Amino acid sequence: MKVACAVLLLALTSSSLGAPRGNLQQRWEEWQMKHGRRYISQGEEEGRRRAWQVNQDLVKAHNNRVDVGFSLEMNQFADGMLSGRQHLKHSPVVDISHDNDLPSAPPASFDWRTKGVISPVSNQGELGDPVAIVAEECVASFQAIKKGEVPKLSSPEIQDCCPMPVGEVFDCIHNFGGLCSESTYPVLTGHCRNNSCQPEVQIQGGKAVPAGQVDQMVDALLERPLAAFIDASKASFEMYTSGIYSDADCSKTVVDHGVQVVGYGEEGGQEFWICKNSWGASWGEDGYIRIKKGSDTCGIESHASYPY
């Protein structure tokens, strides 16, 4: 398998390098201009261009296939700028009990975006912490369900005060007294300064969905949006543009990114989770990705939790 992959990669690279140099250079310059790329040295630019060339052929080959349910594009990550993300530590998944009585037959589809409790898509940039971002989004949505308005809370406060496994982030927010608003907490400092502002939202802690229990994940999602931690390291995820995402090569156990699960649905016989990403509204489906439901794609059904 590894040999076959190496041969494919070599073929793709050779194909790109064999393209007319003028056309390739023009496309490279146009891509750089579109995404505002400036590199610190010629060596870095050459390395980024090689990655871009390989990804260009990968995108073309993928989109020409008829056996996949999603499409890719040469987006802002096509030069490999997202590579090197850190793996997230996660705690063991524990059982849960639901707060409310739920209908025995859940609806065929559901979307919290139609309820007015989901904040706009953010862009974490190079320094943003996906754990802090998705935790803030889930606490804000939880508050909006109760109060009717989505507050803008401080994700830097979580990043400063909760350097711990992702499964404990909601308990950490409870332990330090709740989240301040974005406008009252200082900018990211690397030191917890939550005593410098008054918390706007308090929670009791966090609960985790048992790994692989899709029905329980649906039940929990019908009560509030979820935080899910996944493997988003594959080029197919980074350059996703539309459709129902699935990649058999992504890990179900090693996770490096967080998304907010806001709903679920079905299209063409394929069920999916609706997930809000934090890479800007120009990425994916207006900042969202639909991930295949029922097969623990990239670990989405093994690392889900929520505030209460």
Rank of each mutant, 00 (worst) to 15 (best):
I289S: 04
W112S: 04
L8S: 11
E271T: 14
V139H: 00
E271M: 13
G287S: 10
K276Q: 14
Q260W: 00
V259S: 03
G258D: 03
Q32V: 04
A61F: 14
L9M: 13
K276I: 05
I133S: 03
D296P: 10
G167S: 06
W52S: 01
D95H: 13
C192I: 11
A51N: 08
V218W: 12
D101I: 15
M81T: 05
S109I: 07
G22S: 10
V66K: 14
A227F: 05
M217V: 09
V166D: 02
V218H: 12
L153T: 02
M239P: 05
H303S: 04
G125L: 11
P199E: 07
Y264H: 09
E223L: 13
V59Q: 04
E238P: 00
S109V: 08
V117I: 14
K276L: 09
S282W: 06
E46D: 08
I173E: 00
D219E: 13
C161T: 07
Y264E: 06
P120M: 14
Q32K: 15
R48G: 02
G287Y: 06
K292A: 13
E46V: 03
M1V: 12
Q202I: 09
S295N: 12
F237W: 13
S233L: 00
W112N: 03
Y288N: 07
M239A: 07
A281D: 14
A78G: 05
V139P: 01
L88T: 01
A78N: 03
V66I: 10
S278N: 07
K146S: 10
L82Q: 00
L222M: 15
D231P: 06
F176Y: 15
L188F: 12
G36N: 11
S91F: 03
D256C: 02
T241H: 11
H257T: 03
G263K: 01
T114C: 04
I96K: 12
R113W: 05
L222G: 10
G265K: 05
C162L: 08
P199R: 08
D215H: 15
A208H: 11
A211L: 12
G43E: 14
Y308H: 09
S122T: 15
D57E: 15
Q25T: 06
C162S: 07
E136T: 14
C180T: 02
V3N: 10
V166F: 03
E200M: 12
P225M: 04
G280N: 08
A11G: 15
A281W: 04
P92A: 09
M74N: 09
V121S: 08
L8F: 11
H90P: 00
F142M: 06
N277A: 06
G69Y: 07
E44K: 11
I118Q: 01
Y288K: 04
P307L: 03
H174E: 13
P130E: 02
R50G: 01
S233R: 00
E182L: 13
